[in-house]
Design a protein around this nucleic acid. Structure first.
Length: 471
RNA sequence: GGCGACGUAGCCAAGUGGUAAGGCACGGGUCUGCAAAACCCUGAUCGUGGGUUCGAUUCCCACCGUCGCCUCCA
């Protein structure tokens, strides 16, 4: 049984969807004001792994991820550039999906944009008005935290302990609120600023409102799982709870999952600190890293609730792990069944059970991969000894497929390989094969060296030469 | 100041009340025309100090260190 750490109760909770065989999941998506960096993608990759496990266990998942396409930064940039909001965000949305695809992240079923749900948000505010948890000030609408006694339950942040501006991230004077803890549901917009003329007046939605409104519209009043980075626990998710539960009177989320940060040079990777890298930086940079390596690093290097360190060495190690796995898959594909049987079927069954158990235990993919690599060693030994028969090969192949159904790196490697070989590379490979056929080692080695400089590693096997991309 | 997380071999990182997975790197070996891959061998007593226990890296306390959240950052 799959169990996940629930932020609300702070314990492992079994996943039991409200509707049998159908999990409803909402994950906080990007604010499209800039290109998302790989720290952001740690969250999206984690959520993708979760989604894949949920699909294995429950069959059906409805996954919603919002695109926040209106916020203070977007408004500011749009005005600076003379863009509409849509013009300002369009390129970043395109870039986001390019990275999602490059990292093999399964696309959510819905990517609602905040700006497409203005009416839903206005209605939600009206419902909150009816519950008397709102108030007006300077044309904006605020949520009165004092009216929601459960406030703070998710984050453990006690109301009294909150110090306005303690993080140094906001100028508290910018807001005219009754209480520093209150937050804007609807923000009055100035002349010439982007906004919407609505029943709440001229303005734009506050940050948290969209998630409550779109959850309600696409998944219903109570959802099974809601995910995001730990930084969203407070205030974002706390505020979502306050909005949603005050409006519906029902439990909003049954299980809250939050992933830890990606760290670089002993600090959280973030736009604000300027210590961030995008997928493009890594893939197009000098090292020429591959998306499959980045995915492995983000998905399988550390358990999702542990801080993960980014460094060139950790990328190198991730690459090594991907190589080991892909070479093993290749070997299985290239191997003919032997007569003798070394119990590979039993080995595969045992490792599969171990792997699944690790994932069931709060998605511990790093531990699961430990079992997988133990299997790779044992299976390679059996293959060396010629002790894997037909059923054994099938079982091992199916196991690799089962593992990668969660890990998701093998298809990326296949794409990378297809894109790596130029016509010139192909010509050199066939020349080398010919040289080898006539035992012209000098020419053969020379071409191998030349290909290596072009990023193609060639190696010889009993079945002929094979190659793989370096980097 | 409030709340929380973490500290395991050169690096990354699992894990357990009974003497510690896996990946990368390093060294030796088998195999190979050479190399690669693969396989074999080799490395840590788990931040520090106490406590509980027959026994703790794993539970408790203190301390040291690192990191995060505390209003629009995944």
């Amino acid at each position: 049984m799959l169990r996940l750490h629930d932020t609300m109760t702070r314990r492992l909770m079994p996943v039991e969807p409200l509707e049998a065989g159908h999990v409803r999941m909402y994950t906080c998506g990007p604010t499209v004001w800039n290109r998302a960096h790989i720290g952001n993608f740690r969250a999206f990759v984690f959520e993708d792994v979760l989604r894949r496990v949920l699909e294995q266990r429950f069959g059906r998942v409805t996954h919603v991820m919002n695109l926040t396409d209106v916020d203070d930064r977007i408004v500011k940039n749009a005005m600076t550039h003379g863009h509409t909001l849509e013009e300002e965000t369009a390129p970043w949305i395109v870039a986001f999906f390019a990275d999602v695809d490059a990292l093999g992240i399964r696309r959510a079923h819905h990517y609602p944009r905040a700006t497409d749900y203005i009416e839903e948000m206005v209605s939600l505010v009206e419902r909150l008005d009816a519950r008397e948890v709102t108030y007006r000030s300077d044309g904006s609408v605020y949520y009165r935290i004092a009216a929601f006694p459960r406030y703070g339950q998710l984050s453990g942040v006690r109301a009294v302990a909150l110090v306005a501006g303690a993080s140094g991230r906001i100028d508290a004077d910018d807001y005219t609120k009754e209480d520093a803890r209150d937050f804007a549901l609807w923000k009055a917009a100035g002349q010439g600023e982007p906004g919407w003329e609505t029943r709440l007046g001229w303005g734009r939605p506050g940050w948290h409102l969209e998630c409550s409104a779109m959850n309600l519209a696409l998944l219903g009043e109570t959802i099974d799982i809601h995910c995001g980075g730990v930084d969203l626990v407070f205030p974002h998710h706390e505020n979502e709870i306050a909005q949603s539960e005050a409006a519906t009177g029902k439990k909003f989320v049954r299980l809250w999952c939050h992933n830890a940060f990606l760290q670089i040079d002993e600090a959280k990777m973030s736009k604000r600190l300027g210590n961030f890298l995008t997928l493009g930086d890594i893939v197009d940079g000098e090292e020429g890293r591959r998306p499959s390596t980045v995915r492995y690093l983000l998905a399988a290097t550390a358990q999702y609730r542990k801080t993960l360190n980014y460094s060139d060495e950790s990328l190198e190690a991730a690459k090594g792990a991907v190589d080991r796995l892909i070479l093993f898959r290749d070997r299985l594909d290239a191997t003919a069944p032997s007569r003798r049987d070394g119990d590979a079927v039993k080995l595969a069954a045992r490792i599969r059970a171990d792997f699944d158990a690790c994932l069931d235990d709060d998605l511990n993919l790093p531990e699961g991969m430990g079992h997988v690599f133990t299997m790779v060693r044992d299976a390679n030994r059996l293959l060396d000894e010629g002790r894997v028969d037909g059923p054994g090969l099938d079982a091992l192949r199916q196991l690799v497929e089962h593992v990668d159904d969660v890990l998701g790196v093998l298809p990326l490697v296949d794409v990378e390989r297809a894109a790596t070989l130029s016509p010139e590379d192909r010509r050199m490979l066939s020349e080398r094969a010919e040289a080898r056929a006539r035992k012209d080692w000098a020419t053969s080695d020379q071409i191998r060296t030349a290909l290596a400089r072009r990023g193609i590693l060639v190696e010889d096997t009993a079945g002929g030469q094979r190659w793989r991309p370096a980097g």
